[in-house]
């Protein structure tokens, strides 16, 4: 068992690009669900809108990357409007089902062969964000970072450092925006909507407008996640935008603590640390023949890790819905509605 590499891989996962993507998506879900009580199960649709917004604008239409990023963000806003208009007046269950459906519609449409000239079909769009690495001030052939206790490798390539720097800056900016807004009267109205829409309406609040703003703003963090994902990978793949991504991000948000400022970020980091740790330990067990093949083969490690996600989500909701940082008294989902 190579514990050094297990720990190193887990820690690296905790600050990886994946953790950034999940943190951004979860910040949005937290605004939706934790603060406004909106059940957006289609955060992945916002991610796809951003990613394909960039991909199509730059690759298919040949625009520069920065234009693509702007178009991607706008695509997320438009999606928010389209999603919100028919659903925000309906019961929460319906919003959940419609958002899932829209996420799936987007995935099916972008991977459709009939649109492959635009979206690349099931192959997606590749190689459109080279200029992102052109802007990289770090040296790609050098390594940055250090070894913890001389053993645990926390060194990164220049390209990684650049991506991580941009990504975590985006996360911090998003956290700042949410923190400012939630402490303002605007945030107070959001929380009142989470508690009781009718009460907020009776006190003169335009519930529909606030829900729409929350949906679009929270969706924009998801859009940002999708754009970052696409640019960092220099590729957009339709099957990376499957329904369950939303649920993984939701698990991260709940893990950290809904209705808290830092919960989704810490949740996303922990989510990836746990996933990576499990995967690495299992692989070591199998490779060292401690775990016999009759019980588990290497190809089954993937499923086991995601079984763990499902289990985590269940157990959290049953035993600790407030997550790590949340205040149990403030978790709206605790009540029968």
């Amino acid at each position: 068992m190579d514990w050094n590499s297990i720990i190193s891989n887990s820690l690296r996962s905790g600050i990886s690009q994946q953790a950034i993507i999940f943190a951004l998506a979860a910040i949005g879900l937290n605004l939706h669900f934790g603060y406004t009580g909106l059940l957006n199960f289609g955060q992945v649709a916002f991610m796809a809108a951003g990613a394909y917004g960039v991909g199509i604008t730059t690759n298919t239409l040949g625009a520069p990357l920065w234009v693509g990023i702007i178009v991607g963000m706008l695509a997320g806003v438009v999606l928010g409007l389209l999603l919100g208009l028919p659903t925000l007046r309906l019961k929460a269950d319906y919003l959940a089902i419609v958002t899932i459906a829209v996420g799936e519609i987007i995935r099916l449409v972008v991977r459709a062969a009939v649109l492959s000239d635009t979206t690349g079909g099931s192959n997606g769009i590749n190689g459109f964000a080279n200029s992102f690495q052109d802007w990289n001030p770090f040296n790609n052939s050098a390594t940055y970072g250090f070894r913890l206790f001389d053993r645990i490798n926390l060194e990164f390539s220049g390209a990684d450092v650049w991506e991580l720097l941009v990504g975590w800056t985006l996360v911090l900016l998003s956290v700042f925006v949410v923190w400012r807004l939630i402490r303002s009267p605007w945030g107070r109205v959001l929380r009142s909507i989470r508690e009781d829409e009718d009460a907020a309406t009776a006190l003169g609040k335009d519930v529909f407008r606030f829900k729409m703003q929350s949906l679009i703003l929270g969706g924009s963090f998801g859009t940002l996640a999708g754009i970052f994902y696409a640019v960092q990978q220099n590729s957009v793949q339709p099957d990376n935008y499957a329904t369950q991504q939303t649920f993984f991000a939701l698990t991260a948000a709940i893990l950290g603590g809904l209705a808290t400022i830092w919960g989704p970020v810490v949740g996303a980091m922990l989510f990836w640390i746990i996933l990576s740790f499990t995967e690495n330990v299992l692989i070591e067990l199998i490779d060292n023949n401690i775990m016999p093949d009759s019980i588990m083969e290497r190809s089954q490690v993937g499923p086991v890790r995601f079984m763990l996600v499902g289990l985590t989500l269940m157990l959290l909701m049953i035993f600790r819905p407030q997550g790590i940082f949340g205040d149990k008294r403030e978790i709206a989902i605790d009540e029968r509605k």
Binding site: V177, R180, L181, S184, P185, W186, G187, R188, V189, R191, S192, R194, E195, D196, D198, A199, A200, A202, L203, G204, K205, Q213, L217, R329, E330, I331, A332, E335
Partner: peptide
Amino acid sequence: KVLAKMSVLDNMMLAAQNQSGEVMRRGL
């Protein structure tokens, strides 16, 4: 319909009309 997971004071302050901070960009 009290807003259960908000403080009594927050419940009260919510009800004030014409709050400029309820406009999203001003809230920032």
